[in-house]
Design a protein around this nucleic acid. Structure first.
Length: 495
RNA sequence: GGCCCCAUCGUCUAAUGGUUCGGACAUUGCCCUUUCAAGGCGAAAAUCCGGGUUCGAUUCCCGGUGGGGUCACCA
């Protein structure tokens, strides 16, 4: 049975790279009827952020990536202030609550002779690094403590001397990683460093904690970013030292800035919540991010989360890094905006509309029509309020705007009142886009007016804007009374 | 610098020995058109370089070059 995990460090917000790692892990679990576990790796006490775990969880849930096991949001709690809970038999799923487990495993490695106490001070290590750098040597621990007498070391530890525990890497031979995306990757053992696995404060480092947890939590596929590839042999050595079978690994290509460096802040938004705040739809972001470095093979580009779960395969993930192209994300968002059922779109748009919408409006169907007016003209939900505002309140506009560029003020002064007469004569029950279009069209032809000389001033009268949806669409939404009022106002302006 | 990874249009990618190298975004021309969008039809745009293997290489091998990642008691 497949078990995957996403194991973020709660140091801030969920990064889009993290979102993709989580997404792929989620998809792999989904398609095999497997389990997707969320674990929190908070072993660095200095980099913790108070609401880090909650922030990450909120972004994940927003995107629809819901863990099956581990750290979750309590969905029965207040949606605005959700509670974090842990669920499952393999817990706790927060590493700071598992310290005894790591310490015990580190000690076991010492007994097995695969790890050793190291008493070298941070100062000595820094000096060593400096020296190596100066002599252009690879920077590595010189293994001074590796050959200390175990009994003597133990005595020093019991005597209270500060120490860390290091893994004793195999001194020679070859470590081969069989990566699901990259195939076989080989590392020469004699070039590898002895990593610290247990820090002097008793906390484990990533290497120990992730290996122990992945084993104990029965993770079958470790899916993570390519930046972990260089330390993979350390993890393989750890599995070997414990005598455990290693899981499958998949190292994902990086998501890049336009300049091809690893995606970072400073070059644009990287947090999932930034995109949420900018009015992107989660399905658009997810679809876009899924296609950064993966493609099912065909030419279709629009996939829901469920469809992705059916199609996804790690074998089709590309090896090279992918530039995060926000124009393409915009395109995805526009597509989803266009296709979404109106009722749902209104639901999502509601909080955005709030600032420009009179609180008295109750008519949901009417609000849907308002949103429908502009949905094809915006890229994000954030743009919606400014574009639909004119429906609720006619903006101030100069009379000159009513004059079509291919016509004259005089002609407008003639046409507008005549048009008004026609609209006043129209029965309220025939006030639909189609009928209006037909009647005004027929009238226009009978009068011999050009299309623009009628439609342009009508549209401006109704919208008060240079750019807007078509006049009949707007009129249908505004209704007869408001439309006539705005037209009359335009006529007054032209006097 | 050591180690590791990668390499098809500007960008995301398809094509794993035989195709005029396909699609999408962006750019651009035309059409539609009262405006802005949307839409329709076009255009321009790529196999990093050099050697092999092969009847034949985008594809396989080697070497360059280029880019990236990583070298912490951070993850």
């Amino acid at each position: 049975m497949i078990r995957t995990r996403f194991a973020p460090s709660p140091t801030g917000f969920l990064h889009v790279g993290g979102l993709r790692t989580a997404l792929y892990s989620y998809l792999v679990a989904r398609q095999g009827g497997g389990t997707f576990v969320l674990r929190i790796e908070d072993t660095d006490r200095e980099r913790q952020v108070a609401e880090g775990t909650l922030n990450i969880l909120k972004s994940l849930y927003w995107a629809g990536i819901i863990p099956d096991e581990g750290v979750k949001l309590d969905e029965t709690s207040d949606p605005d202030e959700p509670a974090v809970v842990q669920e499952g038999d393999g817990g706790p799923y927060i590493q700071s609550e598992r310290l005894a487990i790591y310490q015990e495993h580190a000690r076991r490695l010492i007994e097995l002779g695969h790890a050793y106490y190291c008493f070298c001070s941070p100062e000595r290590l820094a000096q060593l690094r400096e020296e190596q750098e100066r002599r252009k040597l690879p920077s590595r621990y010189d293994r001074r403590c590796r050959n200390l007498e175990p009994a003597a070391s133990l005595a020093r530890v019991q005597g209270g001397e500060a120490n860390v525990i290091r893994l004793a890497m195999p001194p020679e031979g070859l470590t081969t990683l069989s990566d699901l995306i990259r195939g076989e990757v080989r590392f020469e053992n004699n070039l590898l460093d002895d990593p610290v696995i247990l820090k002097s404060d008793g906390f484990p480092t990533y290497h120990l904690a992730s290996v122990v947890d992945d084993y104990l939590m029965k993770i079958t596929h470790v899916i993570r970013g390519e930046e972990w590839l260089p330390s993979a042999p350390k993890h393989l050595a750890l599995y070997a030292a414990f005598g455990w079978e290693a899981p499958q690994f998949a190292h994902l290509p990086l998501i890049l800035n336009p300049d091809k460096t690893k995606l970072s802040k400073r070059q644009g938004d990287v947090a999932v919540e930034d995109y949420r705040a900018k009015g992107y739809l989660p399905e658009a972001l997810v679809n876009f991010i899924a296609f950064l470095g993966w493609n099912p093979g065909g030419e279709r580009e629009l996939f829901t989360l469920d469809e992705l779960a059916k199609e996804f395969s790690l074998g089709k993930v590309s090896k090279g890094g992918a530039v995060f192209n926000s124009e393409k994300l915009n395109w995805y968002n526009r597509e989803y905006l266009k296709r979404m059922p109106l009722t749902e779109l209104l639901e999502r748009a509601r909080s955005w509309l709030h600032p420009v919408m009179p609180t008295t409006i109750q008519d949901e169907k009417w609000l849907e029509q308002v949103v429908a007016l502009e949905r094809e003209r915006v890229t994000t939900l954030a743009e919606l309020p400014a574009t639909v505002k004119f429906v609720f309140e006619l903006p101030e506009y100069p009379g000159e705007l009513l004059v079509w560029k291919k016509s004259t003020r005089e002609e407008m002064q003639k046409i507008l009142p005549e048009l008004n007469e026609l609209l006043v004569s129209l029965d309220d029950s025939s006030w639909t886009k189609e009928i209006l279009e037909k009647r005004v069209g027929e009238w226009r032809e009978a009068k011999g007016y050009s299309t623009g000389s009628v439609l342009w001033p009508l549209r401006v009268a109704l919208s008060g804007q240079q750019n807007s949806p078509g006049p009949f669409e707007i009129a249908a939404v505004l209704g007869p009374a408001e439309s006539r009022r705005r037209l009359q106002q335009a006529i007054d302006k032209m006097r």
